[in-house]
Simulated scan of single mutants.
Amino acid sequence: MTPYKIPESVLVVIHTADLQVLLIERADKPGFWQSVTGSLDAADEPLLTTATRELFEETGIVADGENIVLRDWHLSNIYTIYPVWRHRYAPGVTENTEHVFSVEVPRDIAITLSPREHLNHVWLPHLEAADKCFSSSNAEAILQLPKKFAGPKK
């Protein structure tokens, strides 16, 4: 395993059929709310594998491909890595490529946070969730849910 994080990651927006969105609060930056995110463990790790792993590690949700199915949006964002986290990457790396996924879950699904990574979780209507996210790419993905999601609208 490389000593530095790979500057390629996934974003997994977790939502219910009525577009309630799960946000989790970062342990290393209290007050910073987000969807599930995480970097590839290896340069050749498939994105779906990364998304499945991160979803489970950060929330305890198992995407089994039948009842809980991750959707690859085939959308990538390139963003500047926040200076506070740049030390995790190789010298000179300033940008990350983030691949967007979503997953619909039942509202009563059990959430088990990784205490090393997250302090709290909250379910919010998608517009409120977008407003609460510190990451603009995360907020934009949440705002796109009504267009991407083929289920019932509020």
Rank of each mutant, 00 (worst) to 15 (best):
Ser102His: 10
Val10Tyr: 02
Ile61Pro: 06
Asp108Asn: 11
Leu124Ser: 06
Ile68Asn: 08
Ser9Ala: 15
Lys147Pro: 00
Phe134Gly: 14
Thr112Trp: 03
Val122Met: 07
Pro83His: 08
Thr97Lys: 09
Gly92Tyr: 04
Tyr79Glu: 14
Cys133Arg: 06
Thr37Ile: 11
Asp64His: 08
Gly60Tyr: 02
Thr16Gln: 06
Arg107Thr: 14
Tyr82Phe: 10
Thr80Pro: 00
Ala43Tyr: 11
Glu104Ile: 09
Ser102Met: 05
Leu55Ala: 07
Arg53Gln: 13
His121Asn: 06
Thr49Gln: 10
Trp123Arg: 09
Pro115Arg: 00
Ser102Phe: 08
Thr37Lys: 10
Phe56Met: 09
Ser76Met: 14
Ala42Cys: 10
Glu57His: 01
Thr94Val: 15
Asp108Lys: 03
Tyr4His: 12
Leu11Cys: 09
Ala17Asp: 12
Arg26Ala: 14
Leu23Lys: 02
Glu140Tyr: 14
Leu23Ile: 13
Val122Pro: 01
Ile24Lys: 09
Met1Cys: 06
Ala150Gln: 14
Glu8Asn: 06
Leu113Phe: 07
Pro30Ile: 11
Gly151Thr: 04
Leu124Trp: 02
Leu119Gly: 08
Ala129Leu: 04
His15Ser: 04
Val100Trp: 10
Asp64Cys: 11
Val62Ser: 06
His121Pro: 00
Leu143Ala: 06
Arg107Leu: 12
Cys133Gln: 05
Asp72Leu: 04
Ser76Pro: 00
Gly92Trp: 00
Tyr4Lys: 05
Leu55Ser: 06
Lys154His: 09
Glu45Gln: 12
Ala141Arg: 01
Ala150Ile: 09
His15Cys: 08
Leu124Arg: 01
Thr2Asn: 15
Glu140Trp: 13
Val100His: 13
Arg71Ala: 14
Trp85Asp: 15
Ile6Lys: 00
Asp72Arg: 03
Thr50Leu: 07
Ser76Thr: 15
Trp85Gln: 15
Ile78Lys: 13
Ala130Thr: 04
Thr2Ile: 01
Ala42Gln: 11
His121Ala: 11
Ala110Asp: 12
Leu75Pro: 00
Asn120Ser: 08
Tyr82Gly: 14
Pro83Ala: 06
Leu47Met: 11
Pro115Lys: 00
Thr112Ser: 10
Ala51Phe: 08
Thr49Arg: 06
Asn138Ser: 13
Leu124His: 02
Leu11Phe: 00
Ala110Gln: 12
Asn138Trp: 01
Pro3Tyr: 08
